[in-house]
């Protein structure tokens, strides 16, 4: 079956602004959008630039703006789009490096800011740090995050406040705050307790709408807010924004 791909192109060395280019591709309807991009790159235009790695919705490299919403190219079966016209663009609001590749630097820099690693002050027990099934279940959802940046790109607050940590970093923060083995909750909560942290969230739910792993970042952010409000008021208001 023949499909028409409309792909947003941008070459920093020759273009002032992005433009769309059309490609006709012969594909199985059960192929993915990523398969289509590969075919274009291999057979029609070797200069097409995009990120991908695992092809199985685990690495989070190929988040793109496909037919009007944020999707993983590798997870989007062409048939499910119910059209022969496939419009592919880079993640909105992010700086475009070339074609479909965007600058994920600020995104990962913000994830790093919330200390995305297990903090354990106590000396390690023999073997491993155990966790019960129930304790693990509490953070199952947050652990599923593949950090593709779809939520970050869909959040209007990220567009309006460039310092806002964003849904992915805050979900990652709750992934550790809610982890029974973690001992860094106090410090991590202080890091998100400012006007560019949890309090910036306006509960617009775009993040939950676009997440390819069906995570609800708003829920995690509200859990962080809840923990913060349980602290004494001088701790909440004592920090500068």
């Amino acid at each position: 079956m023949q499909f028409k791909f409309h792909i947003q192109r941008y070459d920093p060395s020759s273009d002032w602004a992005p433009r769309f280019e059309r490609y006709l591709v012969e594909l199985d309807p059960l192929a993915t959008v990523l398969d289509g991009l590969h075919k274009i790159q291999e057979q029609q235009d070797g200069s097409l630039c995009f990120r991908r790695s695992c092809r199985s919705a685990i690495c989070g490299s190929c988040a793109m703006y496909i037919n009007g919403t944020h999707r993983l190219a590798c997870k989007t079966i062409i048939k499910s789009l119910r059209t022969k016209n496939i419009k592919v663009g880079p993640l909105p609001r992010l700086t475009i490096i070339k074609d479909l590749a965007v600058d994920m630097g600020p995104f990962f820099e913000k994830v790093e800011r919330i200390m995305p690693y297990l903090v354990a002050n106590s000396s390690p027990p023999k073997g491993e740090r155990p966790q019960s099934i129930e304790e693990r279940r509490a953070i199952n959802e947050m652990i599923d995050c593949i950090m593709c940046g779809a939520c970050y790109s869909a959040c209007p607050i990220v567009g309006l406040d460039k310092d806002y940590l964003g849904p992915a970093a805050l979900t990652k923060a709750y992934r550790f705050v809610g982890d029974s083995r973690d001992e860094g909750a106090g410090e991590r909560l202080s890091l998100v307790n400012n006007q560019h942290g949890v309090w910036r969230c306006h509960t617009i739910f775009n993040c939950q709408k676009v997440c390819p792993k069906s995570i609800n970042p708003t829920w995690s952010i509200q859990q962080l807010k809840k923990r913060l409000t349980r602290r004494p008021s001088w701790v909440i208001f004592g920090r500068k924004g």
Partner: peptide
């Protein structure tokens, strides 16, 4: 590098929460 406009708040691209 191309920096797109950051004020995209057009709700039909998103969902009910955005309209609300």
């Amino acid at each position: 590098m191309y920096r797109p406009k950051t004020s995209d708040i057009w709700p039909p691209r998103y969902g009910l929460g955005m309209w609300a």
